[in-house]
Structures are given as C-alpha cells and as structure tokens.
Design a protein around this nucleic acid. Structure first.
Length: 465
RNA sequence: UCCUCGGUAGCUCAAUCGGCAGAGCGGCCGGCUGUUAACCGGUUGGCUGGAGGUUCGAGUCCUCCCCGAGGAGCCA
C-alpha cells in the first residue's frame, strides 16, 4: 500500500489516549496495538462461544474475534445477534494470524468492546450466495459493498487517477468541453435529445471537435467526462453513459499519436499492477498478460488486417468465447466483432490497426496522400477479446476536403462553420484519440461485462437505481 | 430495430406425456473455541410475470402483452 492513499488522514496515536480509529488497509501497522475500526458487518460465523465477525470499513475487511469470556455478557449477546451489514464500532488488539481471512487478510482483532450503530432488522438482500444479474442490478446500491465490486471500483479510481497523472505530466492541459451540444459531433451515432430552452440540444458523444479548437490555443489538451450514446446497444461491451478521456495535440501526426497512446496505455496498466495488486488478485485476474503491456505495441495496416482475417476465414478459424467462425471480409468494410477479436488474439499486447478506409471512418479523418481511399486513423484493440479501447487518428487540416466531407456525410454545414474556421486561421497537422474508461477497466480487471465497471451503469432499458 | 434464450419460494434452480408445487441456499430456533460460501438438528417458506383461450384438469399447450439476459448493427 502506498503512503499517499490514506496516510494523510490516518489519525496519529497520542500517548494516553483511548484506542485510535484506524483504517483496515493499514491494519498491518498496528499489530500489538489496541485500535478502533468503524464499519459494517460483512459476514459472521457463529461458533457458539466464539463469534467471527468479518468487518469491512471501505478500505478492507478484517476478521474480528468475539470470545465469550473476553467481553461483557451483554456485549457477547450483541455480537451473537448481529446481522449482515449492521453498522458497528469495534475496539480491540490487532494480532497477526495467517488463518484470518479478509482484505488484506492475515490480521485479526481480538475484540474488547463492541458498539452497534444500527442493527439491521430486515433480511439483507445480498447474501453470500448465488444471485442473478437482474437481481444484482436492481440492488446495485447494495451490490457495490460486495468485495468483487469494491475491488473493481477501486481499480477504476486508480485508472482514472493514472489517466490524469500521465496527461498532466506530459504537457496535456485539461479543457472541459460542453455536455450540451447543438448538433451531432460526428453525425454517425444516435444521440440523447434534450430541451435547451425551446430548442433541441444533444448530450455530448465526444469533446473532440471542441478540442480541435482548444489545441490551437493551448497546444496539447484533453477533456475527460461523461459521454452519451443512445444506440440501442445491448451487449457486454456497451453502456449508454460512459466516461471517455480525449487527448488532442497540435503538430502531432498519426505515428506520433500512436506513440503517445502506447506510452499512455502502458502507464495505466503498470500503475494499476503496482498499486492495486490486492484488488486484481481478489478478482482472479491473470496479471501475466498485463505485465507484457509495454511499448512498443504492434502496428497493423488495415490491408494486412484484412489479409490476416481472410486467411483465417479460409482456414475455418473460430473465435472465443463461443467458437464463432471468422467470416471473410471485403476491403472497405469495417470490422465486425469476430474480426476485431481474431486480430487482437494474434498478439500478446494491444494492437494498433491503422489506415482504415476513409469511407468507413468519421468525416474529419485525414486522408493518406498517396492512398486517399485510406485515412490516417488508428484503433487500439485490447487483447483477450476486450475489443476497441481507443479510436483515434490524424484529423484533416484541409479546408476544401472537410467542406466536401461535410457535404458527403450530409451534415448541416452551418453547425460546422466554427470548425471550418480552424482550417482558415493557422491550420496545422494534429491528432488525438479517445479512450473509453469502462472498457479499459473491464480489460484490466478481466471482467466479462462492462456493467461492473461503473458504480451505477446506465444500460439499455435500465435506469434504476 | 432485428435474432436467440428465459420469467416457478427472499435467492439460485428442478418439476418426465398436460395429472398432489419440489430441492439447495438464505432467514428463524437450538448446538459447537478457529470459522473462511463452516458443520449438525429443527423450522419457515408459493396469485408459477400479466390477460385471455383450449381442456375433466395448465407451471407445462395456444394468442397477445410486460419484464430480463445474450448477440447483430453501431461504437469506446
């Protein structure tokens, strides 16, 4: 555990004072000392004259032992009657015992005093047994107390902090972009419409276009906020509201852009491995795959990817998790899910696929001068079937090309006048990318569904709690 | 929007050809000083998603509706 995580708020022990309130993640520092833990009863085992209380406090879980002969009779009775998720304050001496379960585990508190803050009198819905997805999602507000969910959300917080740390220390400055927008950014996806004092407005699907403006003022920027997609996507990789970080940089071409991405993503993975090892272990994550995530990442031209896919399709290759056959692909088509999975499966690290067909990508992607049917885009595909975690590329700096593209994509020209201004006043080559936080969390935690990567996921047909 | 699967006890599921509504877990009561989703004994549990239909008889068959899960398309 790192000192910065809780160290500054951990109360210092004062001579002659009663037991101090400590956090469970630092329990190892208090072996032999009397401490107070304030939390909730996670689980209990009644052994007659001995009560094993698993107490959690938000930072971990510690086993507390209440032995009949060590406490007042009324206190023992209270311990016997404790119910799951009752809130309580325990005081006792910490000792190391390898038999003790918990997080971090290996330590337990020999309880001398026990106070109940609230005794739960109703049956707690989430018992330590099997539950279905629907039931758990209806109780998401309680489910997040469970250790797996707790671990995932701690990893999420770490990834988000790492995102900010890396960008802030590599010359990227935070530029918050609007969530209420007047028109579609890319014109491709379905947006949530809202009422902006009588005129329609849309929840943002990307801050990129705005950041193409801010880089001309600040050089390197990023926006980081919620993003909304109203597509009726109902798969394990989609949520309606997700968080995306979008760095954008002036005077950066597509190749430099990929270098930034591989440094950035590697930092996120390595930081999580270092600071959240206990959480990843709790999740059963095979970290050997993550340890390999270091620059450089393989780069695959779209042409090569198509050839690879068609060779595999001809050979009858199948793709996990359901051994779905890899269908052949024609040049010009975007990848389907099995294509993406097959390509990613061929590499140990995340892989860049670059130079997608211009027609398959957003209107602003720069054309490759020698091959205008391809564009200077790149997607980053995560290994182990987690799919696209980054979409990015070099943006066109050519006014005439963009005017033609806006027409070709049937976008409302007037809404993009400001954007075209950026090509009239000091247009420069520039690139950027968007990384989806939840897909990254899903990949790093090794989860099979995105719904566990955010405290309260907004899923198709589900907006409770 | 489309395709596939599902909805039975608080939870997870079973119920043969259409023939008495079942189990495990949880909860509750009792026992146990080392439990890890403990173990042992007892006990509690039901408008089978909704409406209509077929039938002597429907959890089971038919029609419509509601809800959920996974996937396609689209994307991060």
């Amino acid at each position: 555990m790192r000192a910065f995580e809780r160290g500054s708020v951990q109360p210092r022990k004062t001579e002659g004072e009663m037991a101090e309130h400590v956090y469970i993640e630092r329990i190892a520092d208090y072996v032999g000392h009397e401490v107070t833990v304030k939390g909730w009863l996670y689980a209990k085992t009644d052994k007659g004259k001995l009560q094993f209380l698993q107490v959690r406090d938000g930072t971990g879980i510690v086993q507390c032992i209440v032995f009949k002969k060590s406490v007042a009779p009324e206190q023992f009775e209270i311990a016997q009657r404790l119910t799951q998720e009752s809130s309580l304050i325990v005081t006792g001496v910490v000792r190391a015992d390898e038999r003790a379960p918990g997080i971090p585990g290996g330590y337990e508190i020999d309880v001398g005093d026990l106070q109940v803050v609230q005794l739960v009198t109703e049956e707690y819905p989430i018992s330590p047994k099997e539950h279905g997805v629907d039931f758990l999602m209806q109780h998401r507000h309680l489910w997040i107390r469970s250790s797996r969910q707790w671990a995932v959300l701690r990893v999420r917080a770490t990834i988000i902090k790492a995102i900010r740390d890396w960008l802030d220390s590599h010359g990227f400055i935070l530029m918050d972009t609007p969530i209420l927008t007047p028109a579609a950014c890319e014109g491709t996806t379905t947006l949530f419409e809202t009422n902006y004092h009588g005129t329609p407005a849309y929840l943002s699907q990307s801050g990129q276009l705005y950041n193409e403006a801010t880089i001309m003022a600040f050089g390197r920027v990023y926006c980081f906020g919620p993003t909304f997609r109203a597509e009726k996507s109902k798969t394990r990789r989609h949520i309606q509201e997700f968080w995306m970080v979008e760095p954008e940089a002036a005077y950066v071409d597509m190749w430099q852009n990929m270098e930034i991405q591989e440094q950035f993503v590697s930092y996120l993975v390595q930081t999580t491995l270092q600071t959240r090892a206990a959480e990843l272990k709790l999740l059963g994550r095979d970290v050997s795959r993550l340890e390999k995530v270091e620059p450089p990442f393989p780069r695959l031209h779209y042409d090569e990817a198509v050839a690879m896919i068609n060779k595999a399709a001809a050979a009858g290759a199948v793709v996990p998790p359901n051994d779905e056959p890899v269908p052949p692909i024609s040049w010009g088509d975007d990848f389907g899910a099995p294509h993406e999975t097959y390509v990613a499966e061929q590499f140990e690290k995340p892989v860049f696929v670059h130079h997608y067909p211009t027609a398959a990508k957003a209107f602003y992607m720069a054309q490759e001068p020698d091959r205008p049917e391809t564009c200077r885009s790149s997607d980053l595909l995560a290994p182990e079937g987690y799919g696209e975690i980054i979409g990015g590329g070099e943006r066109s700096s050519d006014l005439a090309f963009l005017e033609a593209q806006i027409e070709r994509h049937r976008l409302p020209r007037e809404a993009y006048e400001w954007y075209l201004d950026l090509r009239r006043f000091g247009s420069v080559p520039h690139s950027g990318f968007g990384l989806g936080v939840e897909r990254t969390v899903m990949w790093i935690c090794g989860l099979n569904h995105i719904r566990e990567t955010i405290p309260f996921p907004r899923l198709l047909g589900r907006i409770y709690p």
